[in-house]
Computed example of a mutant assay.
Amino acid sequence: MSKTVTCLYQDQQKASEIVSRLEQAGISRGDISFYSTFSDDLIDNLENDGVPRSDAHAYAEGVRRGGSLVAVECDDDEVDRVIDILDDDGVLDLDEQQTSWRSEGWQGHDTSTSGGMTGGLGAAAAGLAGSLTGSSGTTRTDVGAGNDVTGSPDITRARTDTAGVSGGDEVIPIAEEELHVGKREVGHGRVRIQSRVVETPVSEQVTLREERVDVERRPVSGTTQAGTIGGDPFQERTIEVEERSEEAVVSKEARVVEEVVVRKDVEQRTETVSDTVRKTEVDVEDERTVRGTGTTGSTDGKR
């Protein structure tokens, strides 16, 4: 039989954290309903999720006042695990909230027309009582703010009254917590290496050779006869002399002078996680008086 476990939280951030924890615990996202915005259809949507109409009105009022509601549909064997996740800091006690709202003028839902629910217990207690007597269908289990799930006053009262009305047995659940340690990755910052090109002015000296041609005309003394030097002076001739010079030529060669190596080392360590787990212990005090003859308290069962 499926049940709908609901919790009202004081803000959307806390409710979102709870939804993430439910998904990490393996609860299907399709079984989780998250309400953080009030709408005219909110009450009907909550009823479709299995929330009684009286509580649906209260939850809708809580959402309208800025709260956020998380509803989880689960099987009987998953209820305790879901409640352990939902029962966290930031959860609001629905009964206390309704009392406060009524003092401000809020009317709520008229329980006299809600199918015979007991006003003293509220819809949460009546829904739980139905599950204890073996009723079928969808039952809502409400988690109270700050209450131990195994010892919540509302839960205990619901079970006691159920025994008186239906003639069934009184039941005290014996619960025990298990410690589950998981892992998550946490960032510790990052190392960023970026290369860039920097230009640095450099200078180098080089010796260059330059040729220059000078043309000079000089007079010749009158004692020198024509034809004695250089042959026939009337012979045509051409002399070419080329001027040459050197200029600087720049070339560059790239070579690797250093390397930057980025390496990530992975180490494993074993860490001991210590916490406390809760379990229910029951002390039975039998103050009955046995009447009649014979020996009482014998171990062989004879009287």
Results as ranks from 00 to 15, higher is better:
Val249Tyr: 10
Arg196Glu: 12
Arg192Asn: 13
Thr228Pro: 12
Thr200Met: 06
Glu253Asn: 07
Arg244Asp: 07
Glu242Arg: 01
Val197Thr: 02
Asp232Ser: 12
His188Lys: 09
Ser251Met: 03
Gly222Phe: 01
Val186Gln: 10
Thr228Asn: 11
Lys252Gln: 02
Ser203Phe: 06
Ser251Cys: 01
Gly187Glu: 10
Val197His: 01
Ala254Ile: 00
Val250Arg: 04
Glu199Met: 03
Ala226Glu: 10
Pro233Trp: 02
Leu179Asn: 09
Val213Asn: 15
Ile239Trp: 14
Arg190Glu: 14
Val181Leu: 06
Val257Asn: 01
Ser221Tyr: 09
Gly222Ile: 01
Ile229Phe: 14
Ala254Pro: 09
Ala226Met: 15
Ser221Pro: 15
Val220Lys: 02
Ala254Ser: 09
Glu211Ala: 09
Arg192Trp: 06
Gly189His: 01
Glu210Ala: 14
Pro219Arg: 13
Gln225Ile: 11
Gly187His: 03
Ser221Arg: 10
Val249Lys: 05
Gln235Thr: 11
Arg255Cys: 01
Val220Asp: 05
Ser203Thr: 10
His188Val: 02
Val202His: 00
Val186Asp: 13
Ser245Asn: 08
Gln205Arg: 03
Glu199Asn: 02
Ser195Gly: 12
Ser245Phe: 05
Ala226Asp: 13
Val213Ala: 15
Pro201Gly: 01
Ser251Glu: 11
Thr238His: 14
Thr200Gln: 11
Ile239Val: 13
Gly231Asp: 05
Arg184Trp: 00
Arg184Glu: 13
Val250His: 04
Lys252Asn: 01
Glu185His: 05
Glu258Asn: 11
Ser245Met: 07
Glu185Ile: 04
Glu242Asp: 05
Glu185Val: 04
Val241Lys: 08
Arg184Gln: 13
Glu199Pro: 04
Glu246Ser: 05
Glu242Leu: 07
Gln225Ala: 14
Arg237Met: 12
Arg237Val: 06
Ala226Gln: 13
Thr200Cys: 07
Gln205Leu: 08
Glu259Met: 00
Val197Met: 02
Val186Lys: 06
Thr223Cys: 15
Leu208Asp: 05
Glu210Asp: 15
Val256Gln: 02
Glu216Cys: 10
Leu208Met: 13
Arg217Pro: 11
Thr223Tyr: 11
Val186His: 07
Ser203Met: 04
Val181Gly: 08
Ser245Glu: 09
Ile193Lys: 03
Asp232Asn: 14
Glu236Pro: 14
Glu199Cys: 01
Val181Asn: 06
Asp232Met: 12
Arg184Ile: 00
Ile193Glu: 07
Glu210Tyr: 11
Asp232Gln: 10
His180Ala: 02
Phe234Tyr: 09
Val191Tyr: 07
Thr228Ala: 15
Arg212Ile: 06
Ser203Asn: 08
Thr207His: 08
His180Cys: 01
Thr238Ser: 15
Val202Arg: 00
Arg192Tyr: 08
Pro201Cys: 00
Arg184Ser: 12
Arg217Phe: 07
Val256His: 00
Glu240Thr: 13
Glu240Lys: 11
Glu204Met: 05
Glu247Ile: 02
Arg184Gly: 12
Leu208Gln: 10
His180Trp: 00
Gly187Asn: 10
Ile239Glu: 15
Val206Tyr: 03
Ser195Trp: 03
Arg255His: 11
Thr238Phe: 14
Gly230Asn: 14
Val198Lys: 05
Gly231Cys: 05
Val213Arg: 15
Glu242Asn: 03
Val198Asn: 06
Val181Ile: 06
Val191Thr: 04
Val250Ala: 09
Arg212Asp: 12
